[in-house]
Design a protein around this nucleic acid. Structure first.
Lengths: 194, 194, 194, 194
DNA sequence: GATGAATGAGACTTCATTCAT
DNA sequence: GATGAATGAAGTCTCATTCAT
């Protein structure tokens, strides 16, 4: 009798609330850094009352972890796309360099990853999240080169991405392609690499 | 009767004061991160009154910049040592991997560099400091490989260091040596690689 | 057992809190000036914790604006009283001078107005408040003289009030009456003034 | 033997130092207000070492008083100019309105006067300075009208100036002239006003 | 279940003033 | 005589977190 359902279906949507908060935090991190998050900032950005942020998350640490998890989920999708692209490519190093270059162009997203990397160095509970990206990348690469080369390639890509981010420089695709080719071996005659 | 209280002789050492503050900040960064610095924290660690930190530095940004500069000076020395070690080495990739592994073992020092890298992404005024390390490393490497390979090698080293730092894992010297050898080429018989 | 400590009944009165703060600020301005307001001072005077002043007001500027608005509300009432008194008077200049003299006797209240006037010179956002008084006064006067004379009269009154305030001298009603009479004209037999 | 006198005549110029400080304070007041003065600000503006401001003035209050005195000296000159201009004028009210309008155009200078007025209400030691302006103005006006009208005219002028300052509006010369003419009478043939 | 009032801690910063040099 | 190093107080403001409602 309080109304049919119009404003009820919408309200009381704990799931949605939670997600709105998490997404707001994600959107904030590129600007403020993980350290710069605050309940007020997130609540304002999410358009939820202040109390909601402490209602759904015990802690700021909890909230930031949730935000990073959310971001990590996107990386998983991203990696799936990389896997597909590389599988369909006949020049893996070139394709990989192109993917990395495009990835770096979305600065906000990439900044979150960088934040996570340094934060994980001091907050061990975040390491699993960092591994989601790194290990996932290595796994994808293993379809195209030796395990050792896959690891090295992932390290190189991380270094290149971080550098592009830091200097606000686009990735030099040509140079990166060459380096990747060297590191991964170069195609049919890979076997020749012996 | 030359003064009312004891530690008169030690007062008035602006140079020393400034340095004490900077060193305290440097010592703190590995634990707190750059964002985590605060006047109080630094002052307490340096054993100076709170006011001193704001007397010698306009700003927390100013203070953190000074601290990072201080750290950067050590990198310059480090790089000099690397240059020497590599020049005297008859297996550059192996020597380089060993140097990197040893470098990563000094976690606090390395953490500062990692902090600088991410911080520079959002604070352009810090980029020159980041370049001190990266460009310096590239320069050292150019004595031993092509320019393009030098850059790629530096990126790989950065990636490897960052990863070791993040996971509190030692650098895998064997794997890294191999990757470096591939990337840098291994002298006359490079062709043999094919 | 309805709570751990006593004054539970009085808590949670946001409206009252806000007003207590505003009134404390108003009470302080005559002593300290607008510039002299501080969160601590206001909080102490209002009997609220320090945090309350920043919880209810974004800013000291916000707080002072609110305080001046509060004071302005009293001017509006005052002006209404003036309008009535003048309408009922058969010697408007004399009545006006008397009103001004009485007004100046409430030094604290009048000081706020003086503060507002100077503050508005540097803070344009305060000008509407200053206009509340000045324009209101002009409007009241227009019922008794020409528009031009009304403006001039208001300026003269402001000057006289400010001077009385500054010198802690009462307004000289006789002199002021004469001046007002001249300025406002006193009907057909003006010439008789000579 | 320390040099002939070149850098000596210039340095060790206590008089000059003092004046530089005072002038810097004067230049600052329009922007910062009297309350906003600080040793550091003044020293920086004056280009003197910080210590100088406390060396030449016991106190900030002392310094601000000195600054206001300095400003008052300029008003004295201004008034002299007004006296001359009015003496040479054949339409005193019009000339007076014009002088006031021009005066108001130098906002910084006028702001100092306004600051002084409100400050004097709370700092009695400043009142003599405020009187320098007001009484001086009345004295000048007495050469052109009755004592009572002179006072009223000065009050009107103060009100008009303050208003122009507050609203950043130029003085309306026509209206002001009319009001002044009414208030001051217009010479021997006052009766003619009818 | 949800919210926003509440507050004390603590962050940054400016500063007046003192005083050794 | 002059200066700038020095420092503790205080100011503004943000905030995490708690808790009454």
């Amino acid at each position: 009798m309080t109304g049919r359902d119009a404003p009820r279906g919408r309200r009381r949507d704990p799931e949605g609330r939670r997600r709105a908060i998490v997404e707001a935090a994600c959107a904030l991190i590129p600007d403020t850094g993980i350290h710069g998050l605050s309940h007020r900032l997130v609540a304002a950005r999410a358009g939820v009352p202040l109390g909601a942020t402490t209602y759904y998350f015990t802690d700021l640490a909890d909230l930031s972890r949730a935000a990073l998890e959310h971001a990590a989920a996107r990386w998983t999708e991203e990696l799936r796309a990389w896997a597909t692209a590389l599988r369909d490519s006949d020049d893996v190093p070139a394709a990989l360099a192109a993917l990395a270059a495009r990835y770096a162009e979305d600065r906000p997203r990439a900044l979150i990853e960088a934040e996570l990397y340094t934060a994980a160095a001091r907050r061990p509970e975040l390491r699993p999240l960092a591994h989601l990206w790194f290990d996932g990348l290595v796994r994808v690469l293993r379809a195209h080169t030796t395990p050792a080369a896959a690891t090295a390639t992932a390290l190189l890509l991380d270094g290149a991405l971080l550098r592009a981010l830091r200097d606000e420089d686009p990735v030099d695709v040509t140079e990166l392609t060459a380096a990747l080719r060297t590191l991964m071996g170069d195609g049919p005659e890979v076997s020749g690499r012996r």
